[in-house]
Design a protein around this nucleic acid. Structure first.
Lengths: 157, 157
DNA sequence: CTTCAAGTTGAAGTGAACTTGAGTTCAAGG
DNA sequence: CCTTGAACTCAAGTTCACTTCAACTTGAAG
C-alpha cells in the first residue's frame, strides 16, 4: 500500500484501454473502487487494472453491467480470482456463449431451408416467424434468445 | 384493389405480431406504405403483411432499420420477391450470420484456452484483450465484430 | 510563482428502435 | 343519436453504457 503503488486516472486509462469517463462510470456503478489524493483526485490500486480486464472480458461475452457487478461481488474483497473462481465463471460464460452460438445456428439453418423457397409466410415460415406468434403459442425453442436480439453499438475510444 | 382488400391497423397488428406503434414507426421510416380512409385512418394492402414478415426476418438476422430499408428498396415497387431476389438476399444474410457465428466461436475458443489459467492478463490474454489495445496495434482478426458487441433489449409486445 | 496538462463534478446528450401518454376523432352497432 | 372501441397525432420517455460539456481545481515542472 505504498503511495507509489497508487496510479492516477491517466495511467489507468492508458493501461486499461478504457476512457477516463468509462472508468468514472464503473466507479459510480460500484464495479471498482478508488482512493483519493489530498486534492480529491482518484488514485487507483494496481489490482484495479485486473478488475478492468475482467470487466472487458465479461462485456465481450455480452454481460450487462448489472451482471458483471454480480460476478464481481462473488469475488470477496479485491482478491485475485482463484483457480476455482475462474473455472466457475468461465463455465458460466461458456454456457452463455454456447447458447448464443446455437441460437445463431438455428437461425442459419432456417435460412438454408428457406433459400429459394421465397415463402416468408406469416403462417408457416419459421424463419420470419421464430416466436410462433400466430398459432397455438405452443412455442418450441425460439430461434433467438433475447440476448442476441439486437446489437447496440458502443463506440470504444 | 377492392376496398375489401384493405386491412385496418388492428388486423395488421394482430396478424403480423407487431405493435401498432411499431407499424406506425415503420411507415414513418418509409419501410411500408398505407392508404387512408376518409377519416384519416390507415388502410393497408395485404402485401404489407409480407413486407412485415420480411422486416421481422431481417431484424432477427440483426439488420438495422436503415439496412432493412436498403434491402427493401432493391425490390422495386411492392413486388413479391422473386426467387432470384430471395437467393441474393439470403446469401447476404447467410454470410452475415456466418461471421457472427465465427466470431462467437473465436471467443468461445479463447475462453476454453483460458479456463483454469486465471490469467486475464492485460498484456497477453487475448480473451480479455481482443482488440490488442496495448501493443503494436498489429491487430489480427478481432474476436468480436461490432455487430455482436452488445445486445440491446427491445421488449416485444 | 507561474503555467498548463490532467483531473474534478453534475447535468445533459447519444443512438436505436420503439413505447407511452394526452388529448382527440372515427366507424360500426344498436 | 349514442356509445364504445379502435385509431389518430405529436411530443416525450425508455434502456444501456457510456460520452460530452461547462466550469472549475490540482499538482508537478520550470
Amino acid at each position: 500500500m505504498d503511495a507509489r503503488d497508487l496510479l492516477p486516472m491517466g495511467e489507468i486509462s492508458r493501461r486499461s484501454g478504457f476512457a477516463a469517463s468509462a472508468i468514472r462510470y464503473y466507479e459510480a456503478e460500484g464495479l471498482i473502487e478508488a482512493h483519493r489524493s489530498g486534492g480529491g483526485q482518484r488514485r487507483f490500486e494496481r489490482s484495479v487494472l485486473r478488475r478492468l480486464a475482467f470487466i472487458r472480458a465479461a462485456s465481450n461475452v455480452g454481460l450487462t453491467i448489472e451482471e458483471i457487478r454480480e460476478e464481481l461481488e462473488r469475488l470477496p474483497g479485491n482478491r485475485t480470482p482463484t483457480k476455482a473462481d475462474w473455472q466457475r465463471i468461465s463455465r458460466h460464460w461458456g454456457r452463455r456463449l454456447d447458447e448464443q452460438i446455437a441460437a445463431l445456428q438455428r437461425l442459419r439453418n432456417g435460412l438454408d431451408g428457406c433459400i429459394g423457397c421465397g415463402c416468408l409466410s406469416l403462417r408457416s415460415c419459421a424463419f420470419s416467424n421464430p416466436d410462433d406468434v400466430h398459432g397455438e403459442r405452443g412455442s418450441g425453442a425460439r430461434l433467438l434468445p433475447d440476448s442476441l436480439r439486437r446489437p447496440h453499438p458502443t463506440r470504444r475510444p
